[in-house]
């Protein structure tokens, strides 16, 4: 399931709803991304997340479908917020549920790595020097690239 929204989310309620009634699920793994208060050496007051409505949902659905192809998953969830967020706020939630923990852990990690380099979101940080667009990081590309192995498994 994909949700792109301005509102905050309740982690417990979302995970409960995700697995509700499916007793084949033995493992549920989730990751929550939060807004940090520092960028480089600068203190951030807030940030604004812009996205590409339409393509965002398509890319997230594609990433989710790919996770289901790679692992035996019973349920997945991606929630990504946009708009104005403050330090400490939740930005993103990804979750993967499966019969066993290994698929849940790996799929969860895959979902957040791919989301960070594929989903069309952009962060504008409020710094003391004014608005600053966040630069993409090479380490994020590397994190995505290591999933592109023939076996579909992460590099050791």
């Amino acid at each position: 399931m994909i949700k792109v929204q301005t509102e905050d989310f309740d982690l417990g309620a979302e995970l409960k709803a995700l697995t509700d009634g499916n007793h084949a699920i033995g493992g549920l793994c989730s990751f929550v991304g939060l807004v940090r208060d520092m960028a480089g050496g600068d203190k951030i007051g807030a940030m604004t997340l812009e996205h590409y409505p339409g393509m965002t949902e398509k890319e997230l659905a594609r990433i989710e479908a790919e996770a289901h192809e790679r692992w035996p998953l019973d349920a997945t969830l991606i929630i990504h917020r946009y708009g104005r967020l403050e330090p400490g706020d939740q930005i993103v939630l990804v979750a993967a549920a499966s019969a066993h923990r290994e698929a849940a852990f790996e799929a969860c990690h895959f979902l957040i790595d791919f989301l960070k380099t594929k989903a069309p979101f952009w962060k504008l940080e409020d710094t003391p020097g004014g608005g600053q667009w966040v630069d993409a990081r090479d380490t994020d590309d590397a994190a995505t690239a290591r999933w592109n192995l023939p076996s579909g498994k992460a590099a050791e």
Partner: peptide
Amino acid sequence: VAFFPPVTGG
């Protein structure tokens, strides 16, 4: 046709 910088979500 959309033009944009490398993405920075998550």
